[in-house]
Nucleic acid binder design. Sequence first.
DNA 1: CACCAGGCAAGTA
DNA 2: TACTTGCATGGT
Length: 218
Amino acid sequence: MRAYQQMFVCFGPRHWWPADTPLEVMVGAVLTQNTAWTNVEKAIENIRAAGALTLEALANISVETLAEWIRPSGYYNLKAKRLKALILFLHDTYGGDLKKMAQTPIPLLRKHLLNVHGIGEETADSILLYALDKPVFVVDAYTRRILSRHRMIEPKATYGEIQRLFMEHLPEDAALFNEYHALIVETGKTFCRKTPRCAGCPLAGLNGANVAPNIPPD
DNA sequence: CACCAGGCAAGTA
DNA sequence: TACTTGCATGGT
């Protein structure tokens, strides 16, 4: 919690995820895979301009057309297929009813999402937390890098191990997990890139280990 | 110019 | 099981 407070003091509330609807969160979660959010915004805006930011419209559009719309987000052929797989899953499993989806128990829901082609652990958990408001902690590249550089995890720690570290030490609160992950990303973007610029980082000195020299490979 | 970004699946050993 | 590689655009 101390790390959380230090980041919060530095950045304030982040108001994540930047999207208007749960469906838009899910689309963004796929499009942002290994991609800068600014590129994702352009892609989502193209879909919106086509009036296709609904389950019905996305279900009826061809992967080729979808790929053209999402071109700015990179990996567009790959992601068009992944979006289609997600849309098909939502349609087939819940009849496109996201309210019904939200009633499914979290472990089962997570298992279902991981079975969708193109949805891995981070994307699944982003959907659970930011689209469905479920208390699931999201682990991303910044989370791993920050914890690793502060010697709080082994560099080779698995996704599940990192996730458990948070969830076993925090109250089970979706709003807290939401804000915490958002703060980690903001801290990561500002101070903990691959080429580190640690000066001014709100986490400097945390756990005794202060930054720059001898940073292990991520 | 080189490097990086809110991953994932498929292939190889 | 544990690495490695392909996927692609746009900003710094």
